[in-house]
Design a protein around this nucleic acid. Structure first.
Lengths: 148, 148
DNA sequence: TAATTACCTACTATGTCAATAGGCAATTTG
DNA sequence: CAAATTGCCTATTGACATAGTAGGTAATTA
């Protein structure tokens, strides 16, 4: 199971914004794209999703960009994953059409419901700032190499 | 994030085998395919994977088929997911090439490692038979509808 | 006014997934 | 032995989502 770049870039962008925003100032898409070495145009599309989900607000024009709507310690990872359409795992053919009681439906419902719950319980328990802090601790000295 | 039919069918096939095997007798691919209404040829490919992973053994010829190599209460869900190449989530570009210390790598490593751990802890804690039992309890009366 | 930025829409190439198909090898049963 | 059944191996294909590209418009600021 591969994680889409959409989710990867979305997480990365939020982290970048949290790191490089000064006092709620905006961080522009071109800046993020250059720092993280990802396609600017594609990033814009992803940021639009995050905006519509209410996680960031946008400011057009010169000196514009994006900023978090809430402080990083008030954003849960589960919100981010949900915003990027990745909150839950589900089988291809949505379970239980026509209410037919197939073994297939039973297995699907039971299994993925439980696995999703395990994932969500973790993602709901962690805030963006907590996650960044843990990241920082794990990377130890290397962290300073890419934080200006 | 969608779960592939490969995983879905694989789980389903193992459950089917566990249910319809009598005293370690074999269950044939054609039978499974018909009961669960999935493509026989495609199912064969998946069963081959499960065989190579050591979860089932195969018997060729008339009256042949597949059987669990261990009782269902000695098979953990994590083994099944791993056998179907779905044990872990990982970003598209495998993290950390060239040992460059990018923020991207840091976020990827830290995030997916934790989420995978949450999933695996669950999957390792459950055996196939426990899962089937919980499924049964949840479905209550409906269970008997498709168990001959 | 000019530059910068977000935003919107359409298009496209690539790759993976989910099969389909055909044939071969092994085994059992009559 | 013969025939049917079953697993196994490999190649091919159609559909679809992903990951990006591209171009233009609207808002904002210096």
């Amino acid at each position: 199971m591969k994680v889409s770049t959409k989710v990867e870039y979305g997480m990365l962008a939020l982290t970048d914004i949290a790191l490089y925003s000064d006092n709620g100032s905006s961080v522009s898409a071109p800046d993020i794209a250059e720092r993280q070495n990802i396609s600017q145009k594609y990033l814009e599309q992803i940021l639009t999703h995050l905006k519509q989900a209410g996680l960031i607000r946008a400011q057009k024009g010169l000196r514009g960009g994006y900023a978090l709507t809430r402080p990083a310690d008030a954003i849960r990872l589960s919100e981010i994953l949900n915003a990027l359409d990745t909150g839950i795992l589900e089988p291809m053919n949505g379970t239980g059409k026509d209410g037919e009681h197939s073994l297939r439906d039973a297995v699907n419902t039971c299994l993925w419901a439980k696995i999703n719950r395990a994932m969500l319980e973790f993602a709901e328990s962690k805030t963006l700032s907590e996650f960044m802090q843990e990241c920082r601790e794990q990377m130890a000295g290397d962290w300073d190499l890419y934080i200006i």
